[in-house]
Amino acid sequence: MTKADLVKIISESTGIIRKDVAVVVDAFLQAIKDSLSQGNHIEIRGFGTFKLKTRKPRVGRNPKTAQRVPVPARTVPTFKFSREFKNSVSNVKIDE
């Protein structure tokens, strides 16, 4: 599912025109980015939590040359689904 698909589904289920829904979805996603860039975490109850996590420095390997390369510490965004969300999709069958 793409963002456009999401906008279409929300528009059809609420009766709000797609243009307005797209503005709200974009603003929601931007609010998440802005909050994380300020070091905050976002908890959406029943859905999940966006957080920042610091990865430790490590020694990596260049796959072409097999040379060892230092990889510095870095901060990465993470998302953890809520238990309620996990339970709601636990019995879904997926086609592989």
Rank of each mutant, 00 (worst) to 15 (best):
V92P: 11
V92T: 03
L52T: 02
T54Q: 13
H41T: 15
N91D: 12
K93C: 09
D95K: 15
R58F: 08
M1Q: 12
H41M: 13
N40I: 08
I32E: 02
V23P: 04
I9G: 12
P77I: 02
K56W: 06
D26I: 12
G39H: 04
E43R: 14
V71R: 05
D20G: 11
V89H: 00
V71Q: 10
P70K: 12
K93V: 12
K86A: 03
A27H: 10
K64G: 09
R45A: 11
K53C: 08
Q30H: 13
R45Y: 02
K86G: 01
D95Y: 13
G15Y: 02
K3L: 03
P63Y: 04
S35H: 02
T75C: 00
P77Q: 01
K64A: 11
L29S: 07
F79K: 02
A4Q: 09
L52M: 05
K86Q: 06
I9L: 15
N40W: 10
A66P: 10
I32Q: 07
F85W: 06
T14P: 00
K33V: 13
P63T: 06
I44L: 15
K64Q: 08
T65H: 05
E43F: 12
A27D: 10
F79R: 01
T75Q: 08
M1D: 05
Q38E: 13
R68L: 13
I44E: 07
I16K: 09
F28P: 02
I94Y: 15
P72S: 13
R61Q: 09
V71A: 07
A31K: 15
D34N: 14
S82H: 01
V69W: 05
D5I: 06
L36C: 07
K19I: 13
A4C: 03
G60R: 09
H41V: 13
N91W: 00
I10Y: 00
